[in-house]
Design a binder for these strands. Sequence first.
DNA 1: GGTTTGACGACCC
DNA 2: AGGGTCGCCAAAC
Length: 121
Amino acid sequence: MLFMIPLNTRPFSMRENFFQDVYEVVRLIPEGRVSTYGAIAKYLGSAKSARMVGWAMNASHHIDDVPAHRVVNRMGILSGAAHFDPQHPMHTLLEKENIRLEGDKIANFKTLFWDPNEELL
DNA sequence: GGTTTGACGACCC
DNA sequence: AGGGTCGCCAAAC
C-alpha cells in the first residue's frame, strides 16, 4: 500500500524513480475525473517541473494500468492526444467515461478537475 | 559533457 | 482569445 504514504514525504529509500511516482498518482485519478501535468508536478515537489510529468506520460505507453488520458494541461486541453494509439484515441477514452468535450477541451473542466494536492493527504 | 528537446505553466502583452 | 518569452530538468544525442 505504497500510496498510503504521501509521495513527497517518503524517505528517499522508499522512492522509486520519478516516472513511477508520476504513474502512481495518475493511477489514483478517479474514473470520470481529470488532473493536470502541473498539479501532479506540484504534488511530487516543486523541484520537478510539469514538463517532466509530460515526459513521464510520454514513456507510459506500454503500461496498461496508467490512465494517461485523464491528464490534460492547465486549460483542460487534451494536449497529449497526438501521442495516443490511433485505435484508442484520447478523446474516445474520455468520452467513454462520460466526460464531455468541446473540440480538444474538457467541457466542464473546473468541476472535473481532480487535484492531488487537495484530494490526497 | 554541452546542447537540444518537450503530452507544461506563469506571465506579459 | 491568442501569441511570445522564459524557467523548468531528465533523456537522448
